[in-house]
Write a protein that binds this DNA or RNA. Sequence first.
DNA 1: CCCGCTAGTCGAAGCGTTTCGACGCTTTCA
DNA 2: TGAAAGCGTCGAAACGCTTCGACTAGCGGG
Lengths: 372, 372
Amino acid sequence: MTDGHSVDGQVPDRDMPDGHPADARAEDGGAVDARAEAGHATGRAVTIVEVARHAGVAVSTVSYVLSGKRAISADTRRRVLDSVRTLGYHPNAGARALASKRANVIALVLPLRAGMHVPVLMRFATSVVTAARHFDHDVLLLTADEGLDGLRRAAASALVDGLVLMDVELDDPRVPLLRRLAEPSVLIGFPADAAGVTCVDLDFAAAGALCVAHLADRGHHEVVLLGAPAVVYERGTAFARRTLEGFTAALAEHGLDGMALPCEESFEEVHATVSGLLAARPGLSGLVVHNEAAVNHVLSSLRQLGRKVPQDLAVVAICPDDVAEPARLTSVLIPAEEVGREAVGLLMEKLAGRAVPPATLLVPRLTVRAST
Amino acid sequence: MTDGHSVDGQVPDRDMPDGHPADARAEDGGAVDARAEAGHATGRAVTIVEVARHAGVAVSTVSYVLSGKRAISADTRRRVLDSVRTLGYHPNAGARALASKRANVIALVLPLRAGMHVPVLMRFATSVVTAARHFDHDVLLLTADEGLDGLRRAAASALVDGLVLMDVELDDPRVPLLRRLAEPSVLIGFPADAAGVTCVDLDFAAAGALCVAHLADRGHHEVVLLGAPAVVYERGTAFARRTLEGFTAALAEHGLDGMALPCEESFEEVHATVSGLLAARPGLSGLVVHNEAAVNHVLSSLRQLGRKVPQDLAVVAICPDDVAEPARLTSVLIPAEEVGREAVGLLMEKLAGRAVPPATLLVPRLTVRAST
DNA sequence: CCCGCTAGTCGAAGCGTTTCGACGCTTTCA
DNA sequence: TGAAAGCGTCGAAACGCTTCGACTAGCGGG
């Protein structure tokens, strides 16, 4: 409940005892960086020349202090850093990009397509932003509307140094373009032909298999996978297909009976699917749900049909923890944070000119909760 | 699947079999020709100097053709534009920003807080991106993690020209900062003290009142508002509070009996709230739901409790159309697209140095569907 | 004692644009 | 018939930073 304000602690200019921030004058007294007019949004910004003058050194020395690319004596370094703080200096991003040929910005390309679970997408997105900031990079948001031209434009104009793409399809038109782009890129998800591109994702095939193995362990003989909406499969979305493959293979491997069904996201459709399924398969005792939006509906539906979880039916979900946890669902976590971090990490490696593995598959982990 | 190549057609780099109109510098000739591979992401990018040489004009002329800031003869314009296309020229964003003091990038600040409905947030976000692109601007994504420092940094380094902030609280710590920033900003939502900042949002007070009026029209005498999770109110989120105010005022105005309740988002909690409510208020006949995440649970819950909508209970929702439509809910639309577009439009006006109204309230519209 | 190092610093040359002032020409209009 | 007022174009000066090469000391090794 104090969440809304927890951020404040990190912020120097809101330390006022009462809620009403006093006027700018009072704040400036306290904050180190505020003395220069910089604190007050005056017109012109502080430049490196002024910092150099203030510290009594050459412009290049300031630059080297800030970048650490050459040795600087402790004394000089301190003086420069002091001046930077006193004047409230922030390097001009455009000038820096022009001179260094690095914008320190990466593009996050996220097509918002039907059937994708937006909250999960956003978790990826925020983890990418956070990770990028750790490398002192910012994130430019590119959406589908502009299509390939958006990527081309951002790359060609040196607006961004590299790209992270989400929601990759098996036959994704962006992939051939990426192969030809000078800027490095990392995909979250796997296209059918991943040659020449760098990909990272949860190992969904292993995840599907893991769910089956868990249910087999628990002694179930007949299990069904409720997956993404049909449109997602038709489009060839990689993660959905791969889960399906892993699930199917594991079924055979463990000698279980079962099948997979796509699953829409409205309560009515879920309910129809579930009740149809239960009617058709009286022996069914295990359910794998790989659809964040539908998973709660599935549980409601089972409740409404009078089936107890896990007594009558065991349920394993493949979804983020914040969906699984409140519902006390045994689940394979979708590690959005980790994937985003990994993607950015790989991109930074490529930007540094280092080689990276073309494919990174994160090992799925299953957490047992109350539903199996 | 041919998409990946159809766009390539726009980069006419195959016009070259014929020699280019004799380039004076033989030595450079190689560089120009190499540009033919521009479509193929070769190393160095085309610069305005090469375009100027290719078109046989001065660099400044190319710039003026592209910016339209000075009159250029039709003939020259055509030649320059041809060269631009032939060489696949994209102005360097950093250089442009440095020289013009405009990055052509705006920041989208979106704190991802508990209780906010992410899909709705994303609709705002994408509409902001789309609108920004119409003004030839890109969007930098800033999240909460960096807090105020993120804003300060982006603004001070001239990374962005202006900011759009979402999910504004009544007492938002970002507002005082914005007032002091040189960069213009627009808030989506209203803080308690909106002096000195530009805000735009749906008129939630009017929306709440509109729902009550509609129910009163339908002859209901006792109505309840199911709102956002409690934490959202405690935090002082403006839109939640304002809906509440509008609702309460309208209740009095129409002489209706009723009250407002916060509402959590899990099915169990919703169900508890709803059944408690029905037990406590046997006369209740109308429900206003302002909680995108809970609205489907409310309907499930009513179904489970054997209450028919709208016969036993009328339901009006305040939510985006894609939630209301499938459920056939009478609703007041949250016009995310329109709000985003308006916010960007206002920001562009401010960037152009023009005055804008400090507050823009979009008039709510109610769509009658099957639930009332 | 000279040489070559290294650490620490400086000056200046770009980086690719935009934009300002200037320069010839034409038109226009007192 | 000039003066004034465009029009279309050019050259060059910024813009604020990074980075390269050069320079100076101080120092250890031959």
